[in-house]
C-alpha cells in the first residue's frame, strides 16, 4: 500500500509546492491538502483538498479515519496581517497545532510527523553564541512568531513522548528567500530604503525556496530520523551586505528611535519587535546535524540564495554603474598623474 500523507497549510506557496511534488512521487497513494484558503494555482487532480480550518472537527475525522501515515504540519504562520491580526495568528498557530496533535494522537496508522518550525525560536540577543546548535539552551523569545514557534515545538515534543512509535522530525528553517517568496523579510528588502539599527550589522542566514521544498520532501519521503534539525544555506550574509546586494540605500536609525519608526513602518511591512531585534543582532544556526542525519545539503548558499532573490528587485545602484565609476576615476587619476609627471 502506498503512503497517505496529510499536509496542513497546503495552499500557501511552500505547501502548494510540496503537495505538487508529493502527488508526483510514485510511492504516494493519497495526498490530503488541508487549508481553508484556495491555492493560487489549483491542486493536482490526485490531491484531495480539505478546505477547513485546523480547528475543525472535519480534520479530526480525516486524520483518524483515512489511514493517514504521515502528517506534515506547515500551518504555522509568521504573518499577523495575513492571518487577520496577532490574536488570530496566535490562535491559529498554537490552538490549531494542539487540535491537530490531539487528532494525531488517536490515529493508529500514523508513523511520521514533520513540523516546519523556524530558527526564530533561538531569539536574537547580544549575548548569544555565534552559531546555534539544536541542543543549546536559549532564552525564550517573548513575542510574535518566535514565541508561537516555541509553543508549537513544545506541544510537538510532548506528542513525541506520548507516541514513541511516530518519527517526529522538526525542521527549524532559516529565513526563506527566492524568486517567488513573499514574507516580512523579503518585503523589507523591497522597501525603497532599508531602515537599520544605527551601529549594528547582524549576520543573517537565508534558505532558498528550492531548498525549502527539497528538505520538506526529504523529511516526508526519505529515511525518518527522529530529531530537530536546523536548515539554512551555507555561510552568512551581513545585513549591510544584503542591502548593498539588493541595491538599496540603508537608513540607519538610532536605537532609541527604532520603536517609533518601526510603528510607522509597520503600516506597510510587518515590523514586529522581534523583527527589529533580528535586524539588530541577527542569528546563525549550525546545519551539520541536518547534513549528517537527514543527508540534506542545501544547493544554495545563503549568499547565492539572497542574490537569486535580489535579482528581481529594482536596484538603485547597478554593477555596471559602479564598474564604470571605478574605471572613470582611475582613468582620471592616471591622466592627472601623467600630466604631473610630464
Amino acid at each position: 500500500m502506498g503512503r497517505c500523507i496529510l499536509v496542513t497549510g497546503a495552499a500557501r506557496s511552500t505547501g502548494r509546492r510540496l503537495v505538487g511534488a508529493l502527488a508526483e512521487e510514485p510511492g504516494v497513494e493519497r495526498v490530503v491538502a488541508v487549508d481553508d484558503l484556495e491555492p493560487e494555482e489549483p491542486f493536482p487532480a490526485k490531491v484531495e483538498h480539505l478546505a477547513v480550518d485546523l480547528r475543525s472537527p472535519a480534520l479530526v475525522r480525516t486524520v483518524q479515519s483515512a489511514g493517514i501515515d504521515t502528517c506534515v504540519h506547515l500551518g504555522v504562520t509568521a504573518e499577523p496581517r495575513a492571518a487577520g491580526g496577532r490574536a488570530t495568528m496566535k490562535e491559529r498557530n498554537v490552538l490549531g497545532t494542539m487540535q491537530l496533535l490531539a487528532a494525531a494522537y488517536h490515529a493508529p496508522g500514523l508513523r511520521r510527523l514533520v513540523l516546519k518550525s523556524t530558527t526564530a525560536v533561538y531569539g536574537a540577543a547580544a549575548g548569544d553564541p555565534a552559531v546555534w546548535t539544536e541542543s543549546m539552551s536559549h532564552e525564550t523569545p517573548r513575542h510574535g512568531f518566535g514565541k508561537d514557534a516555541i509553543e508549537v515545538e513544545d506541544y510537538v515534543r510532548s506528542f513525541d513522548r506520548r507516541r514513541p512509535d511516530v518519527a517526529v522530525i522538526v525542521l527549524r528553517l532559516a529565513n526563506q528567500v527566492g524568486p517567488t517568496v513573499d514574507n516580512p523579510l523579503t518585503r523589507y528588502f523591497e522597501l525603497p530604503v532599508c531602515p537599520t539599527v544605527l551601529g549594528f550589522d547582524p549576520r543573517l542566514q537565508f534558505l532558498h525556496e528550492e531548498d525549502t521544498a527539497e528538505v520538506l520532501l526529504r523529511a516526508t519521503m526519505g529515511p525518518a530520523p527522529h530529531g530537530t534539525f536546523n536548515v539554512a544555506g551555507d555561510g552568512v550574509v551581513l545585513l549591510s551586505q544584503a542591502i548593498r546586494i539588493a541595491g538599496k540605500p540603508p537608513l540607519p536609525i538610532p536605537e532609541p528611535l527604532v520603536g517609533r519608526v518601526a510603528e510607522l513602518a509597520g503600516r506597510t511591512v510587518d515590523f514586529s519587535p522581534e523583527q527589529v531585534r533580528f535586524l539588530q543582532y541577527g542569528r546563525v544556526a549550525d546545519t551539520s546535524a541536518a547534513a549528517e542525519q537527514l543527508g540534506f545539503l542545501p544547493k544554495w548558499t545563503s549568499l547565492h540564495a539572497f542574490e537569486d532573490f535580489a535579482s528581481r528587485l529594482n536596484r538603485l545602484v547597478t554593477e555596471e554603474q559602479v564598474l564604470r565609476l571605478e574605471h572613470e576615476a582611475l582613468d582620471l587619476l592616471r591622466r592627472a598623474v601623467g600630466w604631473v609627471g610630464r
Binding site: 555565534a130 552559531v131 549576520r203 555561510g235 552568512v236 551581513l238 542591502i243 548593498r244 546586494i245 545602484v317
Partner: peptide, 15 residues
C-alpha cells in the same frame, strides 16, 4: 570601494 558598494565580499559564520 566597488566591492563594498555592491556587497561582493564574504564573511565567515562568525562575521
Amino acid at each position: 570601494l566597488g566591492r563594498r558598494l555592491l556587497g561582493e565580499y564574504e564573511v565567515d559564520e562568525f562575521g
